[in-house]
Amino acid sequence: KAKLLVLLYAFVATDADTICIGYHANNSTDTVDTILEKNVAVTHSVNLLEDSHNGKLCKLKGIAPLQLGKCNITGWLLGNPECDSLLPARSWSYIVETPNSENGACYPGDLIDYEELREQLSSVSSLERFEIFPKESSWPNHTFNGVTVSCSHRGKSSFYRNLLWLTKKGDSYPKLTNSYVNNKGKEVLVLWGVHHPSSSDEQQSLYSNGNAYVSVASSNYNRRFTPEIAARPKVRDQHGRMNYYWTLLEPGDTIIFEATGNLIAPWYAFALSRGFESGIITSNASMHECNTKCQTPQGAINSNLPFQNIHPVTIGECPKYVRSTKLRMVTGLRNIPSIQYRGLFGAIAGFIEGGWTGMIDGWYGYHHQNEQGSGYAADQKSTQNAINGITNKVNSVIEKMNTQFTAVGKEFNNLEKRMENLNKKVDDGFLDIWTYNAELLVLLENERTLDFHDLNVKNLYEKVKSQLKNNAKEIGNGCFEFYHKCDNECMESVRNGTYDYPKYSEESKLNR
């Protein structure tokens, strides 16, 4: 008799109507990190870190770059004969040098303040090359056809396309004075040089004057150069050297050249137009028929994500570079809930034993079982409120962090190594801060989002509990077992918050 009662009780308990509160689960393989956990499985997430590029040089917003090819900045601007293909260059979106560009200054020497000139050019998007001192009329008392084997072109001695090597005419090199007034309405880049012979005999042979000088002056520039005559090792078949100089001439300003020898005179100059998204990159990537809004030396990035880990040097509207390998923000729920887990921000989770793959029309909802059958029903209101809140948060985070910009490298010469090392340390410090901030932001927001979901499920549970009161009992896994019969209409009233407690209280009292 006792065995019969136990079996009867078990049958009745199993047959009781139930309603459970749960949440969506799926077959997603997404994982995120939080402050407290690593690799948390979630139903949905968004990636904030771009880690792919196309490996190509592309047009930037429809404008092609200027590819210097086998030449570098120095060779292009001075007019190395091997860089003749660059003479027609007028406009570009950015400038590309190759790491091993070999054609710079063909006659050995240095372009002074080269690093600063590169910085200036990094904001130039177009130029006009014009004859600042016409070759045939500007130097009537001097020979202007100086050439050298060091600047050979097609097997013949030649010289820079933008400079003139002035030497004596006959047996004399009379003092020369020439000036140019900038009437271009924009900055003009003027380049010139000073020749330093290897011996007094060479000085006399070329310029006749043993104590020659070169003077260059404008409103913002004033220097006097004296040739340094000295024996030097042979470089590119030359014992002599040429140093090259430049200045930016403001609109309306005048530049005056005065010399008694050794002047490498300007022939062509450049009127410059600035462009905020221009820059110089060093890259071996090849040019393709493609378009982008962000270019790196590795390749083009076409992404609206706020961060990238491809390269710190970028041109155009680019994500911020960070050292992170993963920045994924959760938008959905835990896919593998932890039992009795309390989140960092106070939300209680884990009283549900598992997510439901059968509930596909919402994030949170119900599963019921009664004599009429069983089924899932999503709670659309709480789901939609959660979707709206999380979507707004993700968009806000992306908008705040998605300050796209150009980031170019800084140039230092060989004598500025300590400054370069200090600059690298400062840049590394800023990069570490950006990386830390980005990672911390994602970790915190992921923790908040998961706790937010847990709290929403808990609130749904409490909503049902407050309606049923003692007409049902909690069975410990997020479910309630009714003390009365609850048909589909009754189940719907529980879900929509209109459950009639008094209607079922007498039946429940008897069954309790």
Score class of each variant (00 low, 15 high):
residue 167 T to V: 06
residue 140 P to M: 12
residue 106 C to Q: 02
residue 115 E to P: 14
residue 187 E to M: 10
residue 86 L to M: 12
residue 42 V to D: 10
residue 163 L to H: 00
residue 26 N to W: 07
residue 209 N to T: 15
residue 138 S to G: 12
residue 79 G to E: 05
residue 10 A to Q: 04
residue 134 P to G: 03
residue 183 N to M: 10
residue 261 G to K: 04
residue 138 S to C: 05
residue 39 N to R: 12
residue 169 K to G: 10
residue 16 A to G: 14
residue 70 K to L: 09
residue 107 Y to P: 03
residue 61 K to G: 12
residue 211 N to M: 05
residue 146 G to C: 05
residue 210 G to P: 15
residue 170 G to F: 12
residue 42 V to W: 11
residue 57 L to R: 12
residue 280 I to W: 05
residue 110 D to H: 06
residue 100 N to L: 14
residue 71 C to K: 09
residue 250 E to W: 11
residue 67 Q to V: 13
residue 198 S to Y: 00
residue 79 G to L: 02
residue 40 V to N: 12
residue 14 T to R: 00
residue 99 P to D: 07
residue 236 R to W: 12
residue 177 T to D: 10
residue 231 A to W: 13
residue 78 L to Q: 02
residue 249 L to D: 02
residue 197 P to H: 13
residue 97 E to L: 08
residue 192 W to T: 01
residue 84 D to G: 07
residue 223 R to N: 13
residue 73 I to H: 04
residue 213 Y to L: 01
residue 182 N to Y: 05
residue 4 L to H: 12
residue 161 R to M: 03
residue 233 P to T: 06
residue 97 E to I: 15
residue 270 F to V: 02
residue 13 A to K: 09
residue 173 Y to M: 11
residue 171 D to L: 06
residue 75 G to T: 02
residue 268 Y to S: 03
residue 57 L to S: 06
residue 15 D to P: 00
residue 256 I to P: 00
residue 37 E to L: 00
residue 108 P to G: 01
residue 166 L to T: 10
residue 24 H to R: 00
residue 9 Y to R: 08
residue 188 V to F: 05
residue 144 F to C: 11
residue 95 I to G: 02
residue 147 V to Q: 08
residue 135 K to P: 11
residue 232 R to V: 03
residue 219 S to I: 03
residue 14 T to I: 15
residue 193 G to N: 03
residue 203 Q to N: 04
residue 247 T to N: 04
residue 251 P to T: 02
residue 265 A to H: 10
residue 206 L to T: 05
residue 88 P to S: 11
residue 180 Y to C: 01
residue 100 N to C: 07
residue 216 V to N: 04
residue 109 G to H: 02
residue 130 F to L: 05
residue 147 V to D: 09
residue 41 A to D: 07
residue 9 Y to L: 09
residue 169 K to T: 11
residue 222 N to E: 11
residue 22 G to N: 05
residue 196 H to P: 00
residue 224 R to Q: 12
residue 230 A to C: 05
residue 38 K to M: 10
residue 50 E to P: 00
residue 188 V to I: 15
residue 136 E to N: 15
residue 5 L to C: 07
residue 126 S to V: 12
residue 6 V to M: 14
residue 149 V to R: 02
residue 174 P to E: 13
residue 258 E to M: 08
residue 44 H to L: 09
residue 136 E to H: 10
residue 257 F to V: 13
residue 140 P to W: 04
residue 88 P to A: 11
residue 25 A to F: 02
residue 77 L to A: 08
residue 77 L to P: 04
residue 141 N to R: 06
residue 168 K to W: 01
residue 217 A to P: 01
residue 229 I to Q: 11
residue 192 W to L: 01
residue 99 P to T: 07
residue 61 K to F: 05
residue 42 V to Q: 10
residue 74 T to V: 15
residue 52 S to D: 01
residue 273 S to M: 12
residue 201 D to F: 08
residue 92 W to V: 02
residue 106 C to W: 12
residue 134 P to S: 12
residue 30 D to H: 13
